[in-house]
Amino acid sequence: MASIWTILLLIISNGFMTYAWYGHLQQSGNDSPLAKWGLAGAILVSWGIAFFEYVFQVPANRIGFEENGGPFNLFQLKIIQEVVSLTVFTLFALFVFKTERLQWNYIAAMICLLLAVFFVFKKW
Score class of each variant (00 low, 15 high):
residue 2 A to P: 00
residue 2 A to E: 10
residue 3 S to N: 07
residue 5 W to N: 08
residue 6 T to P: 03
residue 11 I to Q: 08
residue 11 I to W: 14
residue 12 I to L: 13
residue 15 G to Q: 05
residue 18 T to R: 09
residue 20 A to F: 13
residue 22 Y to D: 13
residue 23 G to C: 07
residue 24 H to Y: 14
residue 25 L to E: 14
residue 29 G to R: 08
residue 31 D to W: 11
residue 32 S to Y: 04
residue 32 S to D: 07
residue 32 S to E: 02
residue 32 S to N: 05
residue 35 A to C: 02
residue 35 A to L: 02
residue 41 G to K: 00
residue 41 G to Y: 05
residue 42 A to Q: 10
residue 43 I to P: 00
residue 48 G to K: 09
residue 48 G to Y: 13
residue 52 F to W: 12
residue 55 V to L: 12
residue 57 Q to V: 01
residue 57 Q to C: 05
residue 58 V to P: 00
residue 60 A to N: 01
residue 61 N to Y: 10
residue 62 R to T: 08
residue 63 I to E: 03
residue 63 I to K: 00
residue 64 G to K: 00
residue 66 E to G: 00
residue 67 E to G: 03
residue 68 N to M: 08
residue 69 G to I: 08
residue 71 P to F: 10
residue 72 F to K: 01
residue 73 N to H: 13
residue 74 L to D: 15
residue 75 F to D: 15
residue 76 Q to L: 12
residue 77 L to I: 15
residue 77 L to N: 11
residue 80 I to F: 11
residue 81 Q to C: 04
residue 82 E to Q: 10
residue 83 V to G: 06
residue 86 L to M: 08
residue 90 T to E: 06
residue 91 L to V: 14
residue 91 L to F: 13
residue 94 L to S: 04
residue 94 L to Y: 03
residue 94 L to K: 02
residue 94 L to W: 01
residue 95 F to M: 07
residue 101 R to Y: 11
residue 102 L to A: 09
residue 103 Q to F: 09
residue 110 M to R: 00
residue 110 M to Q: 12
residue 116 A to K: 05
residue 120 V to F: 11
residue 121 F to C: 04
residue 123 K to L: 09
